[in-house]
Computed example of a mutant assay.
Amino acid sequence: MSGQVSSPEPSKVTPNSPASLEPSAIPAEWRRFGAFLRSPALPEKAAPFSLSSLRAVVVIFGLDLAAMSVIIGTAILIFSFGYELPSNKLAELELGLPIILLIVVGAPLFEEIGFRGWLAGRPAHVWPLIIIGAAAFGLPLLVGQGRPLIVGGGLIIALIAAIILAWRLWGRTPFKFFSRYFGWFYALSTLAFAVVHLSNYDDANPAFLLLVIPQAVAGLLFGYTRVQYGLWASILLHALHNGTFIALAMMGKSAA
């Protein structure tokens, strides 16, 4: 994986690329993603919100569905030989409205902010998340778990400080070191996203990384979408991804 900044041409959104859902536009976007994987490069800025960008997200979602279909098909083949996976905690959830909203709306929002909100490498994105992260993990250690009001107040102050800092830093270009080593940051965000999902399995450990191949593939797509089209786009793609699997799970339970 190259960490160098290559020509920005594959990263640009041209009027002819994702402007329609014609058959020719679909493989074109998929080829751009393939070129991005071969040499990840951070664009100068993400494409602005537009109908063209929205259609691009739909095209990438199609690639996501194709990739997940291959992974699920392979898993079914493996299961046919008698292999059993560790118990998945998500399979035990009662899919009521609060859980569905958490998975389809809450998880995409918070996971994209946490795992890819900083991936643009801009000071206005990186420093506020560092402040919030430091407060979220540091305050409980400093004051203890028995003082929720102090921890909650500190988090509110940290959030306000992060918003003010983001406003002050808005419009600044990405850190030079971040652009230079973007490939490594892209890989790190994808790996972290996948490894965290090991917690969905009972008795899982890092040796079971094959279990989170779907999350790794999804993370690659989410990261690409985030830097090309913006954080809103990766949140939407993530929501579509989760919503599809929730719908399939509900259909499976109804059929059973």
Rank of each mutant, 00 (worst) to 15 (best):
L198A: 08
L51E: 00
S87Q: 15
L220Y: 04
E9I: 12
F222W: 08
R31H: 11
R31I: 15
V227R: 04
R55Y: 00
A120T: 09
A91N: 13
D64G: 09
R147I: 02
R122E: 13
H241W: 10
Y181N: 11
L42Q: 11
P43T: 11
P15T: 08
A216W: 09
P23H: 07
A194G: 03
P18S: 13
P140R: 01
V196M: 12
E111I: 08
I150Y: 00
W167C: 12
L155A: 03
V59G: 00
F33H: 01
P15R: 11
L142G: 05
A166Q: 13
A233N: 00
D202E: 15
P128M: 10
Y201S: 06
R147K: 11
V5E: 09
A91V: 08
L77F: 14
A91M: 11
F222G: 00
A158F: 03
G243C: 10
S11F: 03
R38A: 15
F110P: 01
L188E: 04
L54M: 13
V70N: 09
I78L: 14
A46P: 06
M1P: 05
P128H: 07
T14K: 07
A162P: 05
N16D: 14
F245A: 10
P27D: 09
L191N: 00
P40A: 13
A41H: 06
L231T: 13
L220I: 05
V104S: 03
F110I: 14
I132M: 14
A187D: 04
A120R: 03
G82Y: 12
W167P: 02
R168S: 09
L169G: 06
S179V: 10
I26R: 01
S52D: 09
Q228F: 07
T244H: 07
L221R: 02
L149Q: 02
G144F: 06
N16L: 15
L109D: 05
H241K: 05
A47R: 02
K45L: 11
T173P: 03
L63D: 00
A239H: 02
A233V: 03
L198G: 06
S50F: 14
I71W: 05
T74G: 10
S6I: 05
L141M: 14
L54A: 15
T173R: 13
E29C: 06
S2A: 12
Y83G: 05
A28P: 00
W184H: 07
Q145F: 08
I99L: 10
F49N: 08
S69C: 12
R31N: 12
L169D: 06
R226Q: 15
S189A: 15
